[in-house]
Design a protein around this nucleic acid. Structure first.
Lengths: 335, 335
DNA sequence: GTGAAAGCGCTAACAA
DNA sequence: TTGTTAGCGCTTTCAC
């Protein structure tokens, strides 16, 4: 391993001068700089970030901890964040929590231990009590769906309103029995609970009673969406619209509907949540709730940058970004 | 920040004893261990990984550097790897290279600088010369499509054969004009070049001449696939099948075909490459080339573990995992 | 079974 | 403009 000391020896200067050159600090003579750079190139020297971190406490790396690496929503969020952070000289790295308490705690612990200047944490399973007990001084911006009182900044999507908009659209276009895929009992303090609340709200406004048998609880993979529709069909539960809690689940549902020779949107309307890139390209294209992708990214970045700059971010600690409906081919039009 | 010294002081022992407790080393008295653990809990101490790394050179973290975070192929690969590495007590973190030379070089540099015990690098743009000049002693396993002589282990998919199988199937089921989306001139040393080679090979075997106007060069996002089909249609170039270089591009193509009222597979067959999870759920479901996901993951893991264990992996440095066809609804059947 | 000393590679603060 | 000193928090080595 080539160290600064090796470079310094080879160039006939002190390690401090090498450090100054490497970090682009001003007060280095042009000739000295040349010699140092030559030595660096010759020896193939590379900074040891672990040492730099230990000493200087900075790494230029922001962690993004998400429930699962393969969920398109997070992959697409990561891409948006990466672009923006790069403009500020920061790299973003992604790791998974497994949507578990331990994984999420680990992520926060690691943000101090590890090489992150800051952490963006998608919280699914951690509860407020444990959060506040975490004594980390690292900048943390939480994202995700659930209101979670804590001392950390939190950028949220508007799950209730998004779900309400989606369900209301279905009910206003002739649907009377809207199946929900992936919901939990309304009121549960989690993403599925919040979206179920919006679903119930829309029913209340439309004067349509909520039928609990129309909710199929499940996880959020493609197969889960498929299985959910199958179980409704097999159970003889009739429905004329589907509110899928995520676009991925909606994709699974669309496949199951096709297999059952049900036409979308003529027989069954479908609407998802997340507005993934893929939604617009499905056949028929998937109506969905856009949770405010761009605004969320901007808010996350600006809060994180403020923390890194040593300032408290301006604006509320908890921010709910507005959601809006994107109507496409899987739903019928309003009039 | 709470350090080992703080814990040691509080427990009335030396830092060394704290270190021994934290790392589960054997020779610590039971009573001492209890006192130390109590102090750790009380103070909320957490190991500083930067310091540990600097001193011990291990982090328990494997880096996965991919061209773009939002490409489903890599997200799904990451998920497969994460599961397996976890069983060995290793975390995986994902970062992007931007598919650029600099980004890829950076990733390798960082693997030593940074907190990775090993790096899995998806190489797109880096050339062999630069690779061999990299003097890193960190374990690197390269993945990706392109044969790239170097001293690093390299697990590849069989691009040529996969593309040949896909194209051959189209030609054997009545297609005579197979459009290619995303190809480069056959022979170019890159993934698109290799897949184009397989495409040409199949044409040769079937005695069908390759028409260069059927290849639309493009990038690999959904919109690119859409635009490619549109440009063929607008250019009046007839085709009765599409070989899309990736499933994502195929999805874009399917949408464009639907917009043009072309039926799949009756008017136009479509086959993709990657066999993403989504492929089976599209309507119609997408035929694709499975590049050997499971076997690739196994090979990557076993090579990396061997490196970490200080051994040279057994087996060839360059391994090409066999690909196979997965026929679904966007292609016609053979007979 | 426990502790003292040394040092991993780097940089902040100051001295020359 | 350049160099010296000290030390970040931990673990290796070796003495007790």
């Amino acid at each position: 391993m080539v160290t600064m000391a090796d470079v310094a020896r080879s160039a006939g200067v002190s390690t401090m001068t090498v450090s100054n050159v490497v970090n682009g600090r001003p007060r280095v003579g042009a000739a000295t700089r040349e010699r140092v750079l030559a030595a660096i190139a010759e020896l193939g020297y590379q900074v040891n970030l672990a040492a730099r971190h230990l000493r200087a406490g900075r790494t230029g790396v922001i962690g993004l901890a998400v429930p699962e690496l393969e969920r398109p929503y997070f992959a697409q969020l990561a891409a948006r964040l990466a672009d923006r952070f790069e403009a500020h000289g920061l790299r973003i790295v992604m790791e998974r929590t497994g949507a578990s308490r331990e994984g999420e705690l680990d992520a926060v612990a690691f943000s101090r231990l590890r090489m992150y200047d800051g952490l963006i944490l998608s919280v699914v399973d951690l509860d407020p009590g444990e959060l506040s007990r975490l004594n980390t001084d690292a900048p943390v911006v939480m994202i995700g769906e659930r209101a979670l009182p804590s001392r950390f900044d939190h950028v949220m999507m508007d799950n209730v309103e998004g779900a309400r908009l989606a369900t209301a659209h279905l009910l206003s276009t002739g649907a009377t029995r809207v199946a929900m895929i992936g919901g939990e009992p309304s009121g549960t303090p989690s993403m599925p609970g919040l979206r179920a609340t919006g679903y119930a709200l829309a029913h209340g406004e439309a004067g349509v009673p909520v039928d609990p048998s129309l909710n199929v609880r499940c996880s959020f993979r493609l197969q889960d969406g498929y299985d959910a529709i199958r179980s409704l069909l097999d159970g003889g539960i009739s429905f004329d619209a589907v509110f899928a809690l995520t676009d991925v689940v909606a994709m699974g549902a669309l496949r199951a509907l096709a297999d059952a020779d049900l036409r979308v949107p003529a027989d069954v309307q479908v609407i998802g949540f997340d507005d993934l890139d893929e939604a617009a390209y499905l056949v028929p294209s998937l109506s969905s709730v856009n949770p405010g992708h761009e605004e969320m990214a901007e808010e996350i970045i600006s809060r994180m940058l403020a923390h890194l700059g040593g300032a408290e971010p301006t604006g509320p600690k908890e921010l709910i970004v507005p959601a809006h409906l994107v109507l496409r081919g899987t739903t019928r039009s309003s009039e």
